[in-house]
């Protein structure tokens, strides 16, 4: 809540030492969007890049939370540590949110090697919240080996996760016939791994076959990563070990064929542009005065074209943003 009596910078050492309270508190401040936490977050950023960031996405009801829980348990069984950032949608009407992913992650609570953070999307599109990556940075810097991002289960037309995760897992549930079509349209090509959840259901095999057929149609060149389709059941544990092995293998693949650097760079670019865009929007929203109103009026009255107006606007905002 509100401005902080403890300067955020004082938390940095504690975050790097992996202290839960400091990690959690700095996440809250980053999420609140206070500029005061920026120096601390800048320092944190210099200590990131070590964790394997895995995005898990899929339509609502496909079993993402259960899968995250099962995968986390498998990772923990090997002794590695896990951070989880679970994003749920905010209400477009009230701005509030009910974040329910923890219901399914109950078995993970109490293990110091697991840190779970629920986050509201707050109107952001693409399945992530604005502060999701700040949270990922904090978990990375705090020393968690793998960071899982569970995206909002929205339609998959705009998927940010692929631009920021090292490995993207797309989850489909059996029996969601129409959604297969949606997958075909948008998500097929973004997946590094496909998971068909609820494999204990009778119709799971059909979905696996359908997905495999679609993947054949869009076959990439032989040297590149072959996207596996893995059937899992969070209930029986089927396929979870296989999935974890595939996640690890993908990371190895990235680092051996040089793609990892490309991905990291792609992520840096996407993130920087996104923040720039947000900054412009926020500063514009905060400013909104007679001068900007007049500018918009001119465009509205056809006295000025929108391109010229945008350039003028950027000129005006520029000094404020960079000061």
């Amino acid at each position: 809540m509100v401005s902080d009596p403890t300067p955020s910078c004082e938390f940095v050492a504690d975050v790097l030492a992996g202290r839960t309270r400091a990690v959690a508190r700095l996440m809250t401040r980053a999420e609140a969007g206070t500029d005061e936490c920026r120096p601390a977050m800048a320092e944190i950023y210099r200590h990131t890049g070590r964790a394997h960031v895995v995005g898990i996405t899929g339509v609502p009801g496909c079993g993402k939370s259960s899968l995250v829980t099962a995968v986390t348990q498998a990772i923990r069984a090997e002794g590695r540590t896990v951070g989880v950032v679970a994003v749920d949608p905010s209400s477009p009407f009230t701005g509030g949110a009910i974040l329910g992913d923890r219901i399914r992650m109950g078995d993970l609570v109490g293990d110091p090697g697991v840190f779970i953070r629920s986050m509201a999307s707050r109107g952001a599109l693409g399945g992530l919240a604005r502060a999701t990556l700040d949270a990922v940075d904090l978990l990375d810097a705090a020393g968690f080996d793998i960071v899982l991002i569970e995206t909002v289960g929205v339609g998959q037309d705009e998927v940010d996760i692929v631009r920021v995760a090292d490995t993207t897992v797309v989850v489909s549930a059996p029996g969601l016939g129409d959604d297969i079509q949606a997958i075909k349209a948008g998500v097929l090509e973004i997946a590094d791994l496909h998971v068909v959840s609820k494999a204990d259901r009778p119709d799971a095999n059909k979905t696996v076959t359908e997905l495999k057929q679609m993947l054949m149609l869009g076959l990439r060149d032989a040297a590149s990563w072959r996207v596996p389709v893995i059937a899992t059941s969070a209930e029986t544990g089927e396929g979870i070990a296989e999935l974890l092995a595939a996640i690890d293998k993908h990371r190895t693949h990235l680092s051996t064929d040089g793609n990892l650097a490309d991905r990291k760079r792609r992520s840096a670019e996407a993130r920087t542009l996104k923040i720039a865009e947000d900054l412009v929007r926020r500063h514009y929203a905060a400013r909104r005065d007679a001068a900007t109103d007049a500018l918009i009026d001119q465009v509205s009255n056809r006295k000025l074209d929108p391109h010229s107006a945008a350039r003028q606007l950027l000129g005006t905002l520029n000094s404020e943003i960079t000061s």
Binding site: S66, I98, G100, D101, R104, G106, T236
Partner: peptide, 10 residues
Amino acid sequence: WGTYREVPVF
């Protein structure tokens, strides 16, 4: 058999 986890519904 494992245990049941509820479907979160509000």
